[in-house]
Design a protein around this nucleic acid. Structure first.
Lengths: 243, 243
DNA sequence: GACGCCTTTTGGTCATACCAAATTAAGTTC
DNA sequence: GAACTTAATTTGGTATGACCAAAAGGCGTC
């Protein structure tokens, strides 16, 4: 194998690092490089692939942005088999640039409302016994945390999280993770109070009740009102004109 | 400015490239570096930031993975103000690793069904005159393309695309873009025929009819049947047992 | 103004070197 | 022998300088 760009015309555009990336990628998916284990040393990899350190480092950088390895400043990169959380995490860095203005935030929030409306419909139609148990449990935690705003926020997120788990599709919890982490910076600046907590608790309660009654339309409406009110609160807090 | 890692303890973890990334990032969002214009030459940036080429290149690599610049093998990086498409594109690289088995594909497809069910409901409830016009136009294109499978595929995607545009939220078209590009590899291996095209056309037609009648439930059902049938076709083609 | 040719610039890669932090080995203490 | 300290070594982060081939720019020709 020649380490330089291949002389074959047409094929191979001119990125030696890609070869290394592909090779390591393959070793990761094949399990040859175990999950959570450290990558070989850079100087090791150079001899293995017959490439310069420049190329090896670039490859590692790419693997990192692909979410296949986790790199900390002065530590060995750690193999990370990608999951849905990885995807959302990768998105997060880019998403941040779209949330600089209220429009971006509103769009993201609206999409969340859209998804959750569908989720509660789904819940009302096809929630299983275990799902109902989880929802009741989450609502109970919610109620108990009303006096403690920090704890309440956690249980609030958890309650919505249950909704995302009902379809038994790992993509949805990941989306929920995305929403909460991306919108967290905004939420952190909000005022919180036991009064508001109770209001949100009651909203959750009415959502659950509609689900228990197997009434999709009522559940959707309750959810919509809940999130509309939450947005209104955000809007007023930040003194945004409209939207 | 010292180009080496700062001696201040605590702050600054040890990444010179990050400083450069942040600076260029700021110049991009501020518009100082215009969209679609090329980045300064690497040797230029070295003098500007007092950093070595190693660092500059690493910074550019990071900017690329952040979607703020587009890099082609031997060309100057081009400034790219991030939009929703950028986000999905960034996700794409990671997503691919999750589609290696049928489970991953099924999860993604199911999430698409979930979203589109909600979209057609939305369409049935609140589609505007222009949306209706677009849908009719898309369906018409669809019909005309029945004999030509390649063209039909394009119009098929376009028809669904109209649904994603109805909420007037730029996030949804981006999601659609994601679905089509990520699932394209699977779709490309499917057999196509005027018969199947016509079947899909009729499915689209019944969806639109339900929307025209402002019947969310019927629209959702038509969409569900359409996508269920499509999946069934995929399943049989690849000879997958169940799911 | 369009096309072909030549020079310069510039991105991709390699080699080497240095430092400081991380890891490991060795030695010491309890 | 386990736990802790310390010295030796490995290893990631960065800098420099060099080379090549492909792009970009300049230039004269038609």
């Amino acid at each position: 194998m020649d380490s330089r760009r291949s002389s074959e015309p047409g094929v191979e555009g001119g990125r030696a690092a890609d070869h290394v990336v592909a090779a390591i990628e393959a070793q990761i998916v094949s399990g040859e490089l175990e999950n959570r284990s450290p990558l070989p040393a850079e100087r090791d990899l150079m001899t293995r692939f017959g490439a310069s350190r420049t190329v090896i480092r670039e490859a590692i950088s790419k693997l990192s942005s692909l979410g296949l390895v986790e790199t900390r400043p002065r530590f060995r990169p750690v193999v990370r088999k990608p999951d849905y959380a990885t995807v959302l995490h990768a998105c997060g860095n880019v998403v941040q640039h779209l949330l600089t203005d209220r429009t971006g935030i509103k769009n993201l929030y609206d999409s969340r409302v859209f998804i959750e409306r569908a989720l509660v419909r789904e819940a009302a139609i096809s929630a299983r016994k275990e799902d109902i148990v989880d929802l009741k449990k989450a609502l109970e935690d919610n109620r108990n945390a009303i006096p403690d705003s920090v704890a309440f926020y956690r249980t609030d997120v958890a309650f919505h999280g249950v909704l995302y788990r009902i379809p038994k599709n790992p993509i949805f919890p990941a989306i929920h993770e995305g929403y909460t982490s991306w919108l967290a910076p905004q939420w952190d600046r909000m005022l919180r109070s036991p009064e508001r907590n109770e209001m949100n608790y009651l909203a959750h309660k009415s959502i659950l009740e509609a689900i228990l009654e197997r009434d999709p339309a009522a559940a959707e409406e309750a959810l919509t009102n809940h999130l509309k009110a939450a947005w209104e609160f955000v809007r007023v807090t930040f003194d945004w004109s409209e939207g």
